[in-house]
Design a protein around this nucleic acid. Structure first.
Lengths: 203, 203, 203, 203
DNA sequence: ACCTAAGCGAGACGGTACGTCTCGTCTTGCG
DNA sequence: CGCAAGACGAGACGTACCGTCTCGCTTAGGT
């Protein structure tokens, strides 16, 4: 790596076009700048102008590739997110607890939390963001629903348990805590919430 | 109905000062205009300027009494909200279900939903809104926590059930559905979610 | 002197009405405050609000007695001005020089200069100020014209010399130097200007 | 004349950016609008907002190129002013008289007078305007000083006559008459004033 | 001794303008 | 054709004053 300036205005002497196609350096610089701005100034300071300034990019370059603030935010989120993975401990409660705990930790200790909050906020006034968020949420619920499916399969959960409902309750709990600044719940409280859900579906 | 001008710029020939004290007509006109703007243009179009124009009020009059957009939003919400009340059917599941159902209905069929979404969005970039929202949320959870307390008292719920956790799960579920445009869940799905929570705390 | 608080918000615990007539204390406090504001913040900071704040007076009290900013300014000027008097040395050049010199000194070293500048500025957009200024200027020219009249009478100046023209040239020179911040002309330059005028009317 | 819309909001369907450089059309429209506003509403009604409205320009576009009201006023003055030229009749009195007369006429019969009055007024509360005005005044005095220099050179004026003083007296006389609404002096009065100055420097 | 009339401080009111910020679009000139 | 750059019209931001209004109080002068 030549330039180690990860969150500075990057290239000292700007990028040029590389011909009639998208310049990946620009895209990278813009996403990096977007993340940095979001981290430093929060959603309130997150403007296309600020990102362009930071990335030493022209505003039209941003608008060309990301039609809305929401699209940029989503890309930043996707790029940033190191997937929390899916635990498989053989116990539904333990699986859900570890998932929730690692999500809370990720959101609290990395930019991911700020970014995701911003996306949800944006979705309240931007239809495209709302749609993307809905799709993303559904996907996450499908994903975490598998844990309940496995619990049913191994006889831990009752056969008529609804994996979607469990996933919905869990992700609602996590999202709401993110949005209201309550990511520092201690293990006992978190576990009590998870246990309440799990008990509701045990065989 | 006495005054048919519910969503027009109200008074044909404006309000005056009524001395060195707040003019309730102005306050009323501003709140009404704020609600109308929010309803017609959504959170995206909700600006102090737009409210002032609509209310035929000066911007300083708004800033004098509401230090931030968030404060105005909260007042609009409070003014608009007809409290959903607290059912007491003798069954925890039924209590929670009716509460959730009436909340979903309120949010879907009145401006309250749009307004509350806006407050949550605003809280993602405005510290004062965040604080106000946190306080409001805590109060709501205390309120709905009483239903579980009653269930414990009558032996329906286990003695070590945590009313706060139940309330948190329920309100998280409701808020998240509001924010992601899923207020039209059918009764079965809604009841399945409620039942999962309730089963987790039954004796 | 009873109260030494010449430029503070005056009375610690406010003035009241003294019945159905003008309260001279208020008038005094307002003029004093106006002068203080003008001195401290210049014409740019001279607003009715600022004067009212400073004088602990209500705005209507000011508007009741001074219909415009210009009227207040003129009163402040009249109240402040210690008349420069009219020298009579037996020499026209010396008379004019001493008059100009004392005027320059007064304007440079006391609030009078700032105040008078403000009046002239105000007169450029306020007809009433313009009228008052015109009248005042004419009176001043009549006044200083007497020096030339005396010089004609004693045979120093030619009989057909026009006192009004001399006075006009002199006051124009002074006013313009006030308005362009050139009140620090040294004695030689000032005397050269006066001498040029005087030579033009000597016998 | 192709476009008859000399003082209307100009272009029916607006101007666009012409790239990363100043758009001369906008500059022109703004100066034209500024002049029109000044002419119609006077200095009192001259606001950046009014100019922007009239020119169908955004406020930032004005602030981008003119840092203050004063700067805009000066540009309007420069643009408007058809230089009064410098007469050279071989007689100092005649030179000065014609200069003064044409200046009075220009100020009385064109917008230039209103504009220049506004600049002087603005300079009484805006330091930058004051500086610009000082520089402009010095330049004008240098310029009109040349007439006296020529008179000295041809032996008409005494060798020790001070051209700066003559120019100062003349321009002071003119400026003051502008500011006090006395531009309609008849030829006799004007000539008497000029003659008084000139006699003071004749050989 | 009452009553009315006016002045007083206070400060809210509908407005206008301020100077700054960001929006999303446009156009240039270089590569 | 993409790129950085940055100007453009538009319009919201939150603040300062404008000049007007009404309040509750005070006092004086006429009854």
């Amino acid at each position: 790596m030549k330039t180690p300036d990860t969150d500075q205005p990057s290239d000292p002497e700007g990028r040029r076009s590389i011909g009639a196609r998208r310049n990946p350096d620009s895209a990278e610089a813009i996403l990096e700048a977007a993340e940095a701005v979001l981290l430093e100034s929060g959603y309130a300071g997150f403007s296309i102008e600020a990102v362009a300034r930071r990335a030493r990019a022209g505003k039209p370059t941003i608008y060309r590739w990301w039609p809305s603030k929401a699209a940029l935010l989503l890309d930043v989120y996707r790029r940033q997110k190191r997937d929390v993975g899916q635990p498989d401990t053989g116990s539904l409660e333990e699986d859900l607890f570890q998932l929730a705990r690692s999500l809370f930790t990720l959101w609290r200790d990395t930019p991911a939390g700020t970014i995701f909050r911003s996306i949800i906020a944006e979705a309240q006034s931007d239809a495209k963001a709302a749609e993307a968020l809905a799709e993303y949420g559904a996907e996450r619920r499908r994903h975490s629903g598998r844990m309940t499916e496995r619990a049913i399969a191994r006889g831990e959960a009752r056969p008529d348990a609804n994996p979607k409902v469990v996933a919905d309750l869990l992700s609602s709990y996590a999202w709401t805590h993110l949005l209201t600044g309550r990511l520092d719940e201690d293990d006992d409280t978190l576990r009590a919430a998870i246990r309440t859900i799990v008990r509701g579906v045990l065989a």
